[in-house]
Design a protein around this nucleic acid. Structure first.
Lengths: 224, 224
DNA sequence: AGTAACTTTAAAAAAGTGTTAAAAGAATGT
DNA sequence: ACATTCTTTTAACACTTTTTTAAAGTTACT
């Protein structure tokens, strides 16, 4: 099970949250300031949720939220805001910036857990099995089927096709895709991705054209 | 698209909510009391969301929630509570009884819509598609339609038309446009932009004049 | 009419993508 | 630890599409 990052400067609240999440089987990490949060995020992997207090000693948590939503690596990482600023404007602002939930202080830990479970559970169940045209992916088993026949894919091929599948119909930017598959520094103009797309198309045989090139932008899974 | 049942005795709030949901493409029905709600539910079909105020003239909305969660027919029907009782206990109680969200009064309608969209997973669509006159842009697919027929645009053509579309009716400065499309140093007096406008007009055919030249300033998308 | 601002055109230059084969690198089993 | 096998990356080239330039043609305004 994934990790929860708690960004909260009040030690007591932090501890309370951390204990509850731990008792639910999540691993936790607490940081008390924005700078620590950024530092942790850069080295992190396997994060599945962030609990974010808005008022922190070195600034406003909304900045962090904005950053997360703009960073390819964290775009889909759920964020729950907890804040003493409970006015309607604050709430809307938080939600519009992409927070998954907004909890007002004082809150009971129970509420946070309920809301977190809800968000994470939805994430899980919506991703187990996915169909798109002749393709079917079983995420748990890490197998992709073409017309009920399992494809033989290498790890990277799998990741690329999985990502395209999760984002079918929408254009997935070249750069975006590269960042997902090679999170650290693979320069954008390398031809690796093209090579993979080429191989995927070959493996998809007659269905190869399900991967459409959108010149200048990236690729897209289309209905054929 | 499904129907939204609004259970709210304050006529004004009810109307506000109903208008917003309608503008989002949902059908609505308002009831002002628990008994009306029960009556409506029994005869209903095609419901996809309930907005439930807790304080109603003939009792507490939580009872209705309890009923819904125990009734087979409604077990999975999303319920969003809106309530002036915003304390932590109330919130937890509502969530534990199976509400999908709990919004505290006063709230902005925008918040309700965001949270409803999220629950109904219709999140983005409203922003992903944009219409202007005969033009329709699908940002997700990076396609612009002219009278329902997709235009074949190059990346730069697409970007220019997208920007004009997002800023339709207002004059977009030459310089501004150049800065958007070529963020780094393309000198202002180059004729590239003109060349693109020309090609866009050609591709728009008889609708070419939808791009109006505002001599000395820039361009503008107008209704024709 | 004169001038500055825009349009149009076509050809040159640049950029993006596909494909291939071979080299480099990882992972696996003995 | 070694050899084997599978995977990833690189590099080169062909090809296509897009972008830019530059020059000539229009238009609109004073």
């Amino acid at each position: 099970m994934g990790k929860v990052l708690i960004v909260e400067d009040d030690k007591e609240i932090g501890k309370l949250l951390s204990e509850s999440f731990s008792s639910q089987g999540y691993k936790c990490h607490i940081v008390g300031s924005l700078s620590e949060a950024y530092t942790y995020l850069l080295s992190s992997s396997d994060l599945s949720l962030i609990i974010l207090d808005l008022i922190l000693p070195d600034g406003d948590g909304l900045g962090l939220l904005k950053y997360l939503r703009s960073a390819l690596k964290f775009k889909n990482l759920p964020v729950i805001i907890i804040s003493a600023r409970g006015g309607e404007l604050d709430r809307v602002l938080g939600l519009e910036l992409g927070a998954d939930d907004y909890i007002i202080k004082p809150f009971s830990v129970r509420e946070v857990i309920i809301r977190a479970n809800r968000i994470l559970k939805k994430d899980l169940e919506s991703e187990e099995i996915l169909n798109y045209g002749p393709l079917k992916i079983d995420k748990k088993k890490k197998v992709i089927f073409l017309k009920e026949k399992p494809l033989t894919l290498t790890p990277t091929e799998y990741k690329i096709l999985e990502f395209l599948l999760k984002n079918s119909e929408r254009v997935v930017g070249r750069e975006e895709l590269i960042r997902i598959i090679w999170p650290v520094e693979k320069e954008y103009y390398s031809r690796v991705l093209d090579a993979y797309i080429c191989r995927l198309r070959t493996k998809l045989g007659e269905y190869g054209k399900i991967i459409e090139t959108v010149r200048g932008f990236g690729y897209r899974l289309i209905q054929i």
